[in-house]
């Protein structure tokens, strides 16, 4: 059992691993930061895009070279066919590695899918490493449709195929959810009113962070389970704010009964909407944030 031994014998000096698909890396500055490992689905999507690009560019290359060669008679066609064959060879064996090595771990497909290849210590891949992990696709693709690679991914915590294992790389996702505190998550609930809360009208930042984490889309859980988790916190907050549920729902009765099952979740969202300050961080947010 080679893979069993591999997991037991793992020594993680730089990168620590969480129970989900995130990897924690400690920098020499002594701070931890996280990467999210990309799953097989995301990688398949990137692979599809790359395959299309490869096939398309090879078709164009052949057409172009052969039509140029046609001017040189039979010899010209053969010279150009020879060149095109070398093009096929480069495309087969070096497409992924040249892009990953020179574009900091991204092929066009990976860029479109928001993925990046990194070494497992979080540093960028170099050209040789990229060539190695792409060569081993031959083994990963056996016997059909990347079966070996998929099995290897299922057995390793960082979802690595053989090429990743041998060359110490991992594929991470850089997709972020663009929803802020106010947009998206809390758009469908009303803020709490000062008049509704006879006691304190403030919630510590720490508590807000916990609520946010409860609604983190990376944590997949059913609404019922979330409601269950929300209950104790919601009850404590109701106590603190002195908020109590109105007997009669404002507006639509259908809404009232539908929301009743998830009243604690709803309440926490309202708390979040009322007290959380939207940071509006991120690229291009500088001006809008300052003029607030």
């Amino acid at each position: 059992m080679p893979f069993g031994g591999m997991r037991l014998g793992m020594t993680e000096s730089v990168a620590r691993r969480l129970v989900d698909t995130r990897v924690v890396i400690e920098t020499p500055e002594g701070v931890d930061f996280r990467f999210r490992i990309a799953g097989p689905g995301q990688r398949l999507w990137a692979w599809c895009i790359d395959s299309l690009i490869k096939a398309g560019s090879l078709a164009i290359l052949w057409l172009f070279l052969l039509s140029v060669g046609a001017f040189g008679g039979e010899a010209g066609v053969q010279v150009m066919a020879g060149l095109a064959t070398i093009g096929v060879f480069l495309c087969n064996w070096f497409y992924g590695s040249l892009f990953e090595g020179l574009m900091n771990g991204q092929t066009p497909g990976k860029r479109a899918a928001g993925l990046r290849v990194l070494r497992t210590n979080g540093t960028p891949v170099d050209l040789v490493t990229a060539i190695g992990r792409n060569f081993l696709r031959v083994a990963d693709a056996l016997p059909i449709g990347y079966t070996v690679g998929l099995i290897s991914m299922l057995l390793t915590p960082r979802l690595q195929r053989l090429g990743d294992l041998f060359f110490d790389t991992m594929v991470v996702t850089e997709q972020r959810n663009p929803t802020g505190r106010k947009e998206g998550l809390t758009s469908r609930v009303l803020p709490l009113l000062r008049a509704e809360c006879p006691r304190k009208f403030s919630v510590p930042e720490r508590t807000l962070a916990i609520i946010e984490r409860l609604f983190d889309p990376e944590r997949v859980m059913s609404d019922g389970r979330r409601e269950e988790i929300a209950k104790p916190l919601s009850e404590a907050l109701r106590q603190r704010l002195g908020w109590s549920e109105a007997w009669q729902a404002q507006g639509n009765q259908y809404d009232f009964f539908q929301n009743q099952g998830y009243k604690h979740t709803q309440f926490l969202l309202r708390v979040l909407k009322t007290f959380a300050v939207d940071d509006r961080l991120g690229p291009g947010s500088q001006q809008s944030g300052d003029s607030r």
């Binding site: 996280r34 802020g180 916990i210 940071d279």
Partner: peptide, 24 residues
């Protein structure tokens, strides 16, 4: 624990910087 969104943002900055500064 000042919020996961702020943490995520700074995390991305650090990851980008780490990627830029530490190379082979």
């Amino acid at each position: 624990e000042w919020g996961s969104r702020l943490e995520e943002y700074l995390n991305d900055l650090v990851a980008g910087g780490h990627n830029c500064l530490y190379r082979t």
